[in-house]
Design a protein around this nucleic acid. Structure first.
Lengths: 254, 254
DNA sequence: GTCTATAGCCCGATAGAC
DNA sequence: GTCTATCGGGCTATAGAC
């Protein structure tokens, strides 16, 4: 049922990539809804059935897109971060490069986002299927911190990468709704919040906010951190886990 | 083409309500995808065409649901708030009553949320069509504040209702992903964040965080408040801007 | 303005042959 | 792995009744 992410033959790799590229091109040109699977198949020179052989559904094409973009962003961002050690600026760079790369898909991003928001969807940023992309993204934020000259509070140290990732998600959320010309508003917002985030990190040292920081830390650990073993709010992830406690998810999912 | 929200004849009101109730019942029973428009029409004893006469699309049924629930929640919450003046508790009550009311639709909430997340959708909490529900909700949070015994900082006073509303949205977001038995995790989270929010409000008085507060205020005003002034409840929306630079917004929206 | 009935388009998805 | 044929369901169209 679930074909493992990489099937080895180079032929199939090629076909898969071909279908994905074709689809993304058409999405950019005619939008997501405006592009039919038939059109994708035809443009790629394959049959509809074959397209479905590689991508379980039209939405899974989006996941392919997401994965590809995460990889590309990682490479570009790491390059752009070289030599910069101010935390705020580093954060801004990561966001800025993301906005650059995502720009061509802005119009289509709404549909992407919609699908990603469905907790049952494999495209949810919290889903098991997105794990790879998610971890790539979080890992990159770890680098953002590691390369900065800022001493941050150790209490939230472990959570910082996740927090920065969520900051990223928040900007993405804003961007999806942003209709300003070159997404200028999103860029300015990213610049401002980057500074604010860095400032918050700095402020955590002060005593007045200590209890708040501690509470935040506790909250995040209890409700957000999904990794330890089982329960993300989202889904059971490990394949070996045989349908844990809630067999009740009704027939909505596919 | 757009029939304004209330057509007065009681007959049509009744039919509309009938269709909506029937649909929600079926959604609860078979899920959103598992319920066809044909089935809804049949169960309600109307024709498919008639269902579409009242609801532009299947998704618009969700909007009807959202509006109805907002109304119901308002009534229940206001009642439950009576005599309580601790801010944290008041916030918790609003969230708790919402979770109570929403509970039966939890399984179907994923689909609801998914649609709502599409910025182009009339169902987006930020859309013109959702304005009524949105303002009802924000207005209620104004009451939450007004009835509390807490003196909050005047600088962010005007923004507080919106902020509380966003806090609410955040909890809803968590809830949608929450698979714990009676949404217990969401409830506990709501309780904890309510206290945290009240604490943040209180902390705003301290000098260390002054610059941060000012920055937050400025950020929110610039990037969040979308309605300059033009909004009367009946106002035309001013939604999609002319798009001088990129005439390419493709045919995705409806 | 409200409603029925039905035939049909379109497109995502699937079955099953090769 | 790849195809063609077909299905299911959202949505539309039409034509007419009250």
């Amino acid at each position: 049922m679930r074909e493992s992410a990489r099937t080895r033959t180079p032929k199939s790799e090629h076909t898969r990539a071909l279908i994905l590229e074709t689809a993304l091109g058409l999405f950019r040109e005619h939008g997501y809804d405006g592009t039919t699977m038939r059109a994708i198949a035809q443009a790629a020179g394959v049959s509809v059935g074959n397209a479905y052989y590689y991508f379980e559904s039209k939405e899974h094409l989006i996941q392919g897109f997401y994965g590809r973009m995460t990889e590309e962003h990682r490479a570009v961002a790491i390059e752009a971060l070289r030599g910069v050690d101010d935390l705020a600026e580093r954060i801004r760079i990561v966001l800025g490069t993301w906005l650059d790369i995502a720009e061509p898909y802005h119009a289509f991003a709404g549909k992407f986002f919609r699908v990603a928001a469905d907790p049952g969807s494999p495209l949810s940023p919290f889903s098991a299927e997105s794990k790879q992309s998610r971890e790539t993204a979080i890992e990159m934020h770890r680098l953002v911190l590691a390369g900065s000259n800022l001493r941050y509070d150790t209490e939230i140290e472990r959570l910082m990468p996740e927090l920065l990732w969520m900051h990223h998600l928040a900007i993405v959320f804003y961007w999806v709704h942003d209709q300003s010309p070159r997404a200028e508003k999103s860029r300015r917002l990213a610049g401002r919040t980057s500074v604010a985030v860095a400032r918050i990190v700095r402020i955590c040292k002060y005593k007045v906010v200590r209890p708040l920081v501690r509470e935040a830390d506790s909250l995040l650990r209890e409700f957000l951190i999904t990794e330890p073993d089982q329960g993300s709010p989202t889904a059971p992830e490990r394949d070996q886990e045989p349908e844990p406690t809630s067999p009740e998810r009704p027939p909505d999912q596919r």
